[in-house]
């Protein structure tokens, strides 16, 4: 009886939706150009990638279904992948939170500046994102011979006697990649934070003052942060994305593949199999794992951010 009622109600709902859909034809027409392109270039590739991850595919022959074999090989037989996972998590755990918190600190402090200095400061902090290839210059600064600027300074100060090979010695490579990744991590999320801070109603602070808020830290926790939760969320999504997708920086600075795979990341592993070895199925399995890890992290962050200001 109740099942019947449930089905009837569902049918009714569907009929209602269909009626609504027919009435909003114009809306679908408006959305169509974007929708079609978005599905073609974002949704279809993700689904294709998911499907390919269960196959052996080398582009020349048609894909052959091999079940979970790719995943089994990845997790049990591929030592380099495990190194890549370890490196990626290390990078993500450092550059993610540190990048996020420093982006907020910079944004918060910049917001305290007078208006004109503020505009200049925003350009200075956002500059690494504006000049997309500027991270290549770190290769000169960290160059391994005595002509490298950092080596030259350290030798001049008598800290070291011989130049350090920053970019080929596994002892230092990871640290260099972390520094440069942090340097380039202030993107759209940072702009959102600065804008979010500017958008908070000034009278809230005056009310807070009357209610007994004593210093800028209390003001931050009880007024500022709760008022910009959605910006914090946007910025967190951006941080997680960039923290898990480190690839260009190590590729340009420490080489590809790097010495002892010291800065090999998951995305680099994907590039290795996808565009050098042409094992598309295997590369797709890497992509799928990365994708789900990122979604999981985002859910986690969402949970954490709900507790801000309480």
């Amino acid at each position: 009886m109740s099942l019947q009622r449930y089905l009837a109600r569902k049918r009714e709902f569907r009929a209602y939706q269909w009626k609504m859909a027919k009435r909003s034809k114009a809306c679908y027409l408006f959305l169509a150009p974007y929708g079609i392109l978005f599905i073609t270039f974002f949704v279809v590739p993700v689904i294709t990638s998911l499907c390919l991850s269960f196959t052996y595919y080398n582009i020349l022959e048609p894909p052959r279904f091999i079940g979970l074999q790719n995943y089994i090989n990845l997790l049990l037989a591929d030592d380099v992948f495990l190194i890549a996972v370890k490196n990626t998590f290390l990078l993500a755990l450092i550059t993610g939170p540190v990048g996020y918190i420093s982006a907020f600190l910079f944004a918060w402090f910049i917001n305290e500046l007078p208006r004109y200095i503020r505009a200049i400061a925003i350009v200075m902090f956002y500059a690494p994102s504006l000049s997309a290839n500027m991270y290549l210059m770190w290769a000169y600064l960290f160059s391994g011979d005595a002509y490298g600027l950092l080596n030259a300074i350290l030798i001049e100060l008598n800290v070291i006697q011989q130049p350090i090979t920053w970019l080929t010695n596994p002892q230092y490579m990871m640290a260099v990649v972390i520094i440069v990744s942090l340097w380039s991590s202030l993107g759209a999320g940072f702009l959102a934070l600065v804008a979010g801070l500017q958008g908070i109603d000034k009278s809230m602070y005056e009310a807070g003052l009357i209610d007994g808020i004593k210093n800028r830290w209390q003001e931050l926790w009880f007024i500022t942060l709760p008022n910009m939760k959605s910006m914090l969320m946007f910025s967190a999504v951006m941080s997680i994305t960039s923290a898990f997708n480190v690839a260009d920086v190590p590729m340009a600075l420490t080489g590809f593949p790097s010495t002892d795979y010291a800065t090999h990341t998951v995305v680099l592993h994907l590039i290795d199999y996808g565009s050098i070895r042409f094992e598309m199925g295997y590369a797709s399995a890497v992509a799928t794992l990365l994708f789900f890890t990122m979604i999981l992290c985002n859910k986690l962050i969402q949970k954490l951010l709900r507790r801000v200001g309480t």
Binding site: F41, F42, V43, V46, S49, F244, N245, A247, A287
Partner: peptide, 29 residues
């Protein structure tokens, strides 16, 4: 309209994509 919320939610998820992750199927497309 039906589907509008779902579509937007998918777009927000897509903010997380990096060009490399979908580069292979993208080339095929």
């Amino acid at each position: 309209f039906p589907g509008s919320m779902t579509f937007f939610r998918i777009v927000v998820t897509a903010l997380m994509f990096n060009g490399y992750v979908t580069s292979i199927p993208n080339y095929l497309v």
